[in-house]
Computed example of a mutant assay.
Amino acid sequence: MKTNDKLAHASSQAADLFSEKTGQLKNAEQHLVDNCRGYVHDNPLISLGIAVGLGFLFSRLLGNR
């Protein structure tokens, strides 16, 4: 029974750590999205140029298949 308690405790700790890391990733994602929105708002023409350039690049890369 001692082994079961150890396994349950380790499992609980792993679940807590996973939950904490998930929260950190969500916060980092939201921070990145907020930064991107701010950049696009402050630099709309540059953002449009980047989007067009990336679209062209992806179409060239995927169009050759």
Rank of each mutant, 00 (worst) to 15 (best):
M1G: 15
K2T: 05
T3Q: 12
N4Q: 04
N4P: 04
N4C: 14
D5G: 02
K6A: 12
K6G: 06
A8K: 04
A8V: 12
A8Y: 08
H9M: 05
A10F: 05
A10Y: 07
S11E: 07
S12H: 08
S12T: 11
S12G: 03
S12W: 00
S12P: 00
Q13R: 12
A14K: 00
A15R: 00
A15L: 12
A15S: 07
L17N: 07
L17Q: 11
F18K: 14
F18A: 14
S19R: 08
E20V: 03
K21A: 08
T22N: 00
G23E: 06
G23T: 10
Q24K: 12
Q24N: 05
L25M: 13
K26F: 14
E29S: 09
E29W: 06
Q30E: 11
Q30T: 03
H31C: 10
L32P: 02
L32F: 06
D34N: 14
D34C: 05
D34H: 09
N35G: 07
R37I: 11
G38Y: 13
G38A: 13
Y39P: 02
Y39F: 15
N43T: 09
N43Q: 00
P44L: 05
L45M: 13
S47D: 02
S47T: 07
S47R: 02
L48Y: 14
I50P: 01
I50D: 07
V52M: 10
V52C: 04
G53A: 02
G55I: 00
G55N: 01
F56R: 01
F56H: 12
L57N: 06
F58W: 00
R60M: 05
R60N: 09
R60K: 15
L61K: 15
L62Y: 15
G63T: 05
G63D: 06
G63A: 03
N64P: 13
N64S: 13
N64E: 09
R65C: 15
